[in-house]
Design a protein around this nucleic acid. Sequence first.
DNA 1: AAGTCGGGGGG
DNA 2: CCCCCAGACTT
Length: 425
Amino acid sequence: MKLPDETQTCQNWNVLSLANLAGTGNQKKGNELRKRTFSISRAKDMPGGSPRRRSAYDPAMLSSSSSFARQLLRWYDRSRRDLPWRIDPAVGGEPNPYHVLVSETMLQQTQVATVIPYFQRFLARFPTVADLAAADEQEVLRHWQGLGYYSRARNLRAAARMIVHEFGGHMPTEPEELLQLPGVGRYTAGAVASIAFGRRAPILDGNVQRVLCRLDAIASDPRDRQTQQRLWQRAEEILPRRRVGDFNSALMELGALVCTPRNPQCLLCPVRDHCEAFASGLQEKIPAPKAAKPTPLVRRQTYCVRRADGQWLLEQRPSTGRWAGMWQFVTIAAEDPLDASAARAPAQSAAPLPIRVRRIHPMGIVTHSLTHRRYEFQVFRCEAAATGILADNCPRRWTTLERLDDFPLPKPHLRIAQMLRDQPE
DNA sequence: AAGTCGGGGGG
DNA sequence: CCCCCAGACTT
């Protein structure tokens, strides 16, 4: 995509540049940011890029200063989805900054359709930032249960507490302030600042990366550092002077609805005349797919231990690592491959169970796939022996199936709980 | 720069 | 089965 000359050599915009934050490895260095004059280099001077080719589509289209933004915003006004964290355009007004923060956090690495019901439930329970700040962490986790990446939930609660205790209960409005909040990185800071407060801050998420790579026909891996730097710079260059939040939202909306990873709908694209990938027929090849890595299989044995009064034993996971602080049925490593002997003598070749049990009964296999691992839970039902729990430091609780909702459980253990309901005895 | 952290959508 | 998704954080 070509830019109008006016924006190629930008004159002292005095915008806040976050470029020096890119990949420092410590986002909290954002404290050191100062406002400074920002100048934009031409694309051919950008690192990692070849001089830009002229496409057959570019010249006259972009002679006006914001043809791209106007076309994109016009499309957005017509086609945008009615999402619960967006203000109804018919009503107008400003988005609720707290709603924007919650939605942007939930949307990290998560598709819109998945987030919507979680967002509704979360806001019903924690209507204001003060409500969230005052909430118990376990209850916040319960409302995040099933959404994944649970550190987001704990960080969001910590961010709410910081807003209440250090920002006087008001959401910070500037990107460098937002960056101080736990769980808020460069993307989320820019999204909240632009969408909730109209600040002229760029964003770069997976959608925008793809859109910009295609517009500029950038064939290099969008994940490598130099390309990232180049894309952030482009995301800033193309910002219009007004409606920045809508413009940023529109870029993402375009990536989600039209400029999709596969089978992009170029004929429906409002800005295809600006797209170098479309001009050269490369839209299906950009960006290059990520190289897949093998995902190791992790075997576990899970014991659903029932007490004489019918309650089941849960244990709490450590406060760090996967599913941190969440609860599960008693689970131990199962190093050996699954075979018939495991069902006869389940705990023999693995770590010892923390409780004496009897009448061990196999219930089935639950599989669960994550980005880097595949889990296989071999599930057993058993009865607690009279001698009870063996001593160690892991927190444990007895609970009924009805009260299981009081505990945040990882997805595979939610499925195990359903097995218990479906297979009484 | 590479790993970790969940779970699901959609081809 | 696969890659990807309104990323942040740690090492």
